[in-house]
């Protein structure tokens, strides 16, 4: 299945429907205050997945109860096939950074994330996928990132949402081979992919700005991952409010062609 992330500017196109949109990903933060009826309608039309941004699985201690309650209500409204969250922290020490930040791949962090992931999975009563992030910071730890992710999934009884764009960007910024990185990740672990074009700044640094169309070199890596890991779903994650429906459809066609 190939689909898109629900965004307000794409709501019209999504509600009308299009053969090229085969599934839908919902971010709970967009529906915490309202729109539950709309969610029920969307889940009648598409297979739905719910993608959390703010559980901060990497923060030791209890998760944010208010956010978990909202996440659960969104899941109850749209009955997702699975939920997902990031291998990251967004808040710590009373500071909410509001963005995904990396953790060093240590045994202590493995324990923290696995414990929070298990709790999230149990409380939301849905299978949980864990997603790799991109970061300018590359923290050192007890093992490489890919080994950390595989071990984390094993301990938390989860599977992976592989963000191919994040992998591509990290590989370029931190100088490693993404295909070698993928060799350690078993195909059966990867259930879903995230993809969106990258941005390259004047300093030669790559960014995950979520507002660019897919580039040819990235599309090539996506095609390789689709072939080697056979994910069940691929979601295009365009966040910019200026993206026109025709542009999104062209991106989906490129993904269908790469599959």
């Amino acid at each position: 299945m190939i689909g898109i992330g629900w965004r307000r500017n794409l709501a019209g196109m999504i509600s009308i429907g299009d053969d090229r949109i085969q599934c839908l990903e919902i971010v709970p933060d967009h529906f915490l205050d309202s729109g539950r009826q709309q969610l029920a309608e969307l889940s009648g039309r598409y297979p739905v997945f719910v993608h959390g941004l703010s559980c901060s699985l990497g923060t030791p201690g209890p998760m944010d109860e208010e956010y978990l309650r909202g996440f659960k209500q969104v899941c109850d409204a749209c009955q997702p096939h699975w939920i997902s969250e990031h291998v990251a922290f967004t808040r710590a020490g009373g500071i909410d950074l509001g963005h995904l930040n990396p953790l060093s791949p240590t045994r202590a962090n493995l324990q923290t994330i696995a414990s929070n992931a298990q709790e999230l999975q149990e409380r939301l009563e849905r299978p949980l996928l864990l997603e790799n992030i991109t970061s300018s910071i590359r923290l050192q730890g007890d093992m490489p990132e890919n080994e950390f992710l595989v071990e984390l999934c094993r301990r938390a009884d989860c599977r992976l949402l592989l963000d191919v764009t994040n992998l591509f960007i990290n590989a370029r910024n931190h100088g490693f081979d993404p295909q070698r990185w993928l060799e350690l990740v078993p195909a059966e672990l990867v259930v879903q992919l995230h993809v969106v074009g990258y941005q390259l700044d004047g300093n030669g640094r790559y960014h995950d700005s979520h507002d660019q169309p897919l580039q040819a070199d990235l599309l090539e890596l996506i095609g390789l991952v689709m072939e080697s890991h056979q994910p069940e779903a691929v979601i295009l994650e365009r966040d910019d409010s200026q993206a026109r429906p025709a542009e999104i459809i062209a991106e989906l066609e490129a993904l269908h062609a790469a599959a």
Binding site: L97, G98, H99, N101, S104, T106, A108, S135, S136, I137, R138, L139, Q140, G141, R205, H207
Partner: peptide, 26 residues
């Protein structure tokens, strides 16, 4: 101690770039 060694190893430009990413998102 673990945090100390992790933070000492991060290049300054990477920290500045990460903060830049957070501020750019805002």
């Amino acid at each position: 101690p673990a945090a100390r060694s992790a933070l000492l190893a991060i290049p300054a430009e990477d920290l500045l770039a990460q903060r830049g990413t957070l501020v750019a998102k805002r």
